[in-house]
């Protein structure tokens, strides 16, 4: 009990300090709603998260789910392509050298720079947003998976050699389990990037989604809702991250 208190106390104190500062700032600047006002507004908002009043007026729940769905599809496709590609790049030096310049060139490109290309190719907002998620979240998975393959201890490969294991056994018993922790790190970074990018992408593409919702509330000058959206984005991002941390713990062998 005492221990839990010791761990929790600083966090709680930090949060209280943050809310206090926020309250103070909102006192001096009348446009910024304070914590209490925002809380009231949030309670109201989340009392009916799943209403539908036409295409541009839907509950916050639908908006979150719409964003998560886009992230899920874009990220899923990135994983389906990025992870096997990472394995191959890590295993075959030729492929590594071949792809290295392309990856180093494209990886630092700001995610939103890809949006026009998406709009051009798909001629629709939704696939373009998914495209942006895909292209911006694929790099950490390729790079981490490839690095993981490259970093498999020689000892394990020696075991494979001494036992003369088949390629399939090497993959299932050594390569895959050894790379899994690195892969999960890549996935974690990717999800982080994807969730970061979706808000910006949706602001530009419109439709239903937490990013568009923020933009819409800005046009309505509903600042409480914008602040709520910031918290929602933060909390969902935190939950995604924690899920993957749990997954990573499950597959670490130390």
């Amino acid at each position: 009990m005492n221990k839990i208190l010791k761990i929790l106390l600083p966090s709680v104190l930090g949060l209280l300090l943050f809310v206090g500062l926020w309250a103070l700032v909102s006192q001096t600047s009348p446009q910024l709603p304070g914590p209490i006002k925002t809380w009231d507004s949030a309670v109201q908002l989340f009392s009916d998260p799943f209403y539908r009043k036409g295409p541009n007026d839907q509950g916050i729940g639908w908006n979150i789910l719409a964003s998560l769905q886009r992230v899920g599809i874009g990220f899923g496709m990135a994983a389906a392509i990025g992870i096997p590609l990472g394995f191959m790049i890590g295993r075959f030096d030729f492929l590594n050298r071949m792809t290295a310049p392309i990856i180093s060139l494209l990886r630092p490109v700001s995610p939103l720079a890809w949006l026009p290309i998406g709009l051009l190719v798909f001629k629709a907002a939704n696939p373009a947003a998914i495209w942006v998620i895909f292209i911006s979240s694929i790099w950490p998975m390729i790079i981490n998976t490839a690095a993981g393959v490259g970093r498999i201890p020689q000892d394990y490969m020696n075991v494979a050699k001494v036992l003369n294991l088949s390629e399939w056994k090497i993959f299932t018993k050594i390569l895959f389990p050894a790379v899994l922790p690195h892969m999960i790190t890549g996935i974690r970074l990717s999800i982080g990037v994807a969730w970061l990018v979706i808000v910006a992408a949706e602001m530009l593409t419109g439709g239903v989604g937490i990013g568009f919702w923020v933009w819409d509330e800005w046009n309505n000058l509903n600042v409480e809702h914008i602040i709520i959206a910031i918290f929602v984005v933060g909390i969902v991002g935190l939950l995604l991250e924690q899920m993957l941390v749990l997954l990573a713990k499950r597959f670490s062998y130390e």
């Binding site: 000892d155 394990y156 020696n158 075991v159 050699k161 001494v162 018993k173």
Partner: peptide, 16 residues
């Protein structure tokens, strides 16, 4: 080449 007729015990056990 390596083969299971010559089994190796490595210094650092090398268990998976």
């Amino acid at each position: 080449g390596p083969g299971p007729d010559r089994a190796v015990v490595f210094q650092n056990h090398s268990l998976l």
